[in-house]
Computed example of a mutant assay.
Amino acid sequence: MTSGIDLEANFFAVEEAAERAAQEGAQVLFTPEMSILLDSNRKRAADWIDDSSASWEVMEKLTNAATQNEIDIALGSMAVSASDGMWANRSMYFDHQCDGPVDPVTYDKIHMFDVDLTTGESWRESSAYKPGDQVVTVPDTPLGKLGLTICYDMRFPALFEALGQRQCDAIAVPAAFTVPTGKAHWHVLLRARAIEAQAFVIAAAQVGKHEDGRETYGHSLVVDPWGEVLLDMGGEGPGLGFCDIDLDRIKEVRGQLPSLANKREIPK
Rank of each mutant, 00 (worst) to 15 (best):
A192D: 11
N89E: 11
A192E: 11
L29N: 07
M34A: 14
R155T: 13
M154K: 14
I195M: 10
I245G: 08
Y93A: 01
L75I: 08
N41F: 03
N10W: 02
R42Y: 15
E16W: 09
A21T: 07
G239F: 06
S53I: 03
D133S: 14
Y107G: 01
P101K: 12
F156E: 13
F11K: 07
M233N: 01
D108E: 13
Q134T: 14
D246M: 10
E121F: 14
A45S: 09
I250S: 07
G120K: 11
L7Q: 10
E57M: 12
D108A: 03
P142R: 11
D39K: 03
A204N: 01
Y107P: 00
L190V: 00
P267M: 09
Y152I: 04
V188D: 11
L163I: 10
A45W: 04
T31G: 06
D114N: 14
E215A: 12
I73D: 01
Q256S: 14
V188K: 15
R193K: 12
N69G: 02
K183P: 00
D103I: 00
V58D: 04
A54F: 10
D108Q: 05
P174W: 07
P180Q: 11
V28A: 04
Q68P: 00
D99W: 04
R44K: 13
D50G: 05
E161L: 15
L230R: 12
G234H: 06
L190Q: 04
P104E: 03
S122D: 08
P142K: 10
L221H: 01
V115L: 10
Q27A: 13
A194D: 00
A205G: 04
P225N: 08
L231T: 03
G147S: 07
E60D: 09
V135W: 05
A175W: 02
R44G: 00
S35P: 00
G237W: 05
W87E: 02
I36V: 13
D47R: 15
D212E: 09
E265W: 14
A199I: 02
E15Y: 12
